[in-house]
Deep mutational scan, measured.
Amino acid sequence: MPSETPQAEVGPTGCPHRSGPHSAKGSLEKGSPEDKEAKEPLWIRPDAPSRCTWQLGRPASESPHHHTAPAKSPKILPDILKKIGDTPMVRINKIGKKFGLKCELLAKCEFFNAGGSVKDRISLRMIEDAERDGTLKPGDTIIEPTSGNTGIGLALAAAVRGYRCIIVMPEKMSSEKVDVLRALGAEIVRTPTNARFDSPESHVGVAWRLKNEIPNSHILDQYRNASNPLAHYDTTADEILQQCDGKLDMLVASVGTGGTITGIARKLKEKCPGCRIIGVDPEGSILAEPEELNQTEQTTYEVEGIGYDFIPTVLDRTVVDKWFKSNDEEAFTFARMLIAQEGLLCGGSAGSTVAVAVKAAQELQEGQRCVVILPDSVRNYMTKFLSDRWMLQKGFLKEEDLTEKKPWWWHLRVQELGLSAPLTVLPTITCGHTIEILREKGFDQAPVVDEAGVILGMVTLGNMLSSLLAGKVQPSDQVGKVIYKQFKQIRLTDTLGRLSHILEMDHFALVV
């Protein structure tokens, strides 16, 4: 994948999101292997301009796509893939009243899908469409860049269908997702969380590099694949309309690839034109409109599966009536509230959605109805927002919020430890010299600072030695090549209790 991002070429006709291997024109390309080798690009942008032909009021008969309808489940399912879809609609009884809503608040519980998330729908649909058009064949390999849930859905379907599955996901995604993927037989590649989507090191860039190296491999490409919004247009939206008897006044959905909100909203605009569509985008993402909503100094966020630093091709923002931004604290607070007060075992993005819903639905009156999409299960986040310690460490809970008995030293300040200034190293000294210094002084790690004293990161003896043994660096290389740029900081005025929580999850903390 090139470091400079080429513009994806656009073909003359058809839909841009065809499933299957992508040609340089962004659509299915038939021909000899030699032709494909000559024409197939190194990668295709996940934010390529959409060429979708959908228009409100256009006859369904003019759609270029294969459409399906929700099917009634048999008493005995032939395999677990038949437990994807037909998820329950559940009334939220307490939270709406707590925040003064007059309307009825309903939750579409997508964590009841077989793999635990709304992404099971698009995973199965992308595979079925690729099999139907002859792209996927027995023994082929599926590769997908994902925040985890699409990966789980694909790995689940691949396990049943017999495909090899490789999932490329950023490091910030939970260990629970990784464990589930491994249990399903998927191979996992992790990428830096802070890598831009168009960087060769991003999950998108690495996935395309693997595709170019592995024979008979395919990126189904949830960011561009029409099967993504079509899955929701054909099934999720129809289920909502049936469950609500066609009567709903507002739908609120958090947005990642945009397939969920695009597919549902398009069908609702056709069948229930008075329904307002509300999009939820986390602070630090750029999906919301108008652009002024996205202006923030924050560039990272903890909530998973929603928000991006690019506009995915499948996201149709014209069908969203209003956007709201959400933050991590309210997302996790509301997710825990949904679990504790409503018994809905949902993930953090569901918290984002409901946090926005109780604001947006203030305009609705008694007798009206708001539906929220709860995308995934708490299963993926047992060591994250479900953990009091994690919430404390991230600053989303305060010590006084917890009532468990603490040891005698818990409320003492870090400054009472009488710490001395640490050994520091410059980023320009060599790895070999740094190892000598650390061994001589008896230290395992040291902060790396520039000549102005600005902290650049941390270097550890173990990481340097393993990097040297693996051949990633040489003793003569500058130590700046092996620094940890993500590390926890703590102030002298913070409590030892807070430091204790940090050290339970990290090997060190830097006192500043």
Rank of each mutant, 00 (worst) to 15 (best):
Ser3Gln: 10
Thr5Ala: 04
Gln7Leu: 05
Glu9Trp: 05
Pro12Phe: 03
Pro12Cys: 04
Thr13Tyr: 05
Thr13Phe: 09
Cys15Val: 08
His17Asp: 06
His17Leu: 15
Ser19Ala: 15
Pro21Gln: 04
Ser27His: 12
Leu28Lys: 07
Gly31Val: 12
Ser32Gln: 11
Lys36Trp: 05
Lys36Leu: 13
Glu37His: 07
Lys39Thr: 11
Glu40Ile: 11
Glu40Val: 07
Glu40Trp: 12
Leu42Ser: 05
Trp43Met: 11
Trp43Asn: 08
Ile44Trp: 04
Arg45Tyr: 03
Pro46Trp: 01
Asp47Gly: 07
Ser50His: 05
Thr53Val: 11
Thr53Lys: 10
Trp54Gly: 06
Gly57Arg: 09
Gly57Lys: 11
Arg58Pro: 10
Glu62Trp: 04
Ser63Lys: 06
His65Ala: 03
Lys72Pro: 10
Lys72His: 10
Leu77Asn: 07
Leu81Val: 14
Ile84Asn: 08
Ile84Leu: 14
Asp86His: 11
Thr87Ile: 02
Met89Asn: 03
Met89Val: 10
Val90Ser: 08
Ile92Arg: 04
Ile92Val: 14
Asn93Gln: 05
Asn93Ile: 01
Lys94Trp: 10
Ile95Thr: 08
Lys98Met: 14
Leu101Ala: 02
Glu110Lys: 04
Gly115Ser: 08
Ser117Val: 03
Ser117Arg: 04
Val118Ala: 14
Asp120Thr: 07
Arg121Glu: 02
Ile122Asp: 00
Ser123Trp: 08
Arg125Phe: 11
Ile127Ser: 07
Glu128Val: 15
Glu128Ile: 13
Ala130Met: 00
Glu131Pro: 04
Arg132Tyr: 03
Asp133Cys: 07
Gly134Gln: 08
Thr135Gly: 07
Thr135Pro: 05
Leu136Asn: 00
Lys137Ile: 10
Gly139Gln: 03
Asp140Lys: 08
Ile142Asn: 01
Ile143Ser: 00
Ile143Asp: 00
Glu144Thr: 00
Pro145Ile: 00
Pro145Leu: 00
Thr146Cys: 02
Asn149Ser: 03
Thr150Asn: 02
Gly151Ala: 02
Ile152Ala: 02
Ile152Phe: 05
Gly153Met: 06
Ala155Asn: 03
Leu156Gly: 02
Ala157Glu: 06
Ala159Ser: 04
Arg161Asp: 03
Arg164Tyr: 15
Cys165Met: 04
Ile166Phe: 07
Pro170Ala: 05
Glu171His: 04
Met173Arg: 06
Ser174Ala: 06
Ser174Arg: 01
Glu176Gly: 06
Asp179Trp: 04
Val180Leu: 09
Ala183Gln: 05
Ala183Cys: 15
Gly185Trp: 01
Thr193Trp: 08
Arg196Ala: 05
Phe197Ile: 07
Ser199Met: 03
Pro200Thr: 08
Glu201Val: 04
Glu201Asn: 09
Ser202Phe: 06
Val204His: 09
Gly205Thr: 08
Val206Phe: 09
Ala207Ile: 00
Trp208Tyr: 08
Arg209Gly: 09
Leu210Trp: 04
Leu210Arg: 02
Lys211Ser: 05
Asn212Phe: 10
Ile214Cys: 04
Ile214Arg: 05
Pro215Tyr: 08
Pro215Thr: 04
Pro215Leu: 03
Ser217Lys: 05
Ser217Gln: 06
Ile219Leu: 09
Asp221Leu: 02
Gln222Asn: 02
Ser227Phe: 10
Asn228Leu: 02
Pro229Ala: 05
Pro229Tyr: 01
Pro229His: 00
Leu230Ser: 05
His232Cys: 00
Tyr233Arg: 00
Thr236Gly: 07
Thr236Ala: 05
Thr236Met: 09
Ala237Tyr: 01
Asp238Glu: 11
Asp238Ile: 08
Gln242Lys: 14
Gln243Ala: 09
Gln243Lys: 12
Gln243Trp: 04
Cys244Met: 07
Gly246Leu: 05
Gly246Ile: 07
Lys247Ser: 03
Leu248Tyr: 02
Asp249Leu: 04
Met250Tyr: 05
Val252Ile: 13
Val252Leu: 14
Thr262Asp: 01
Thr262Met: 07
Lys267Pro: 03
Leu268Met: 07
Lys269Val: 01
Glu270Lys: 10
Lys271Ile: 12
Cys272Thr: 11
Gly274Asn: 10
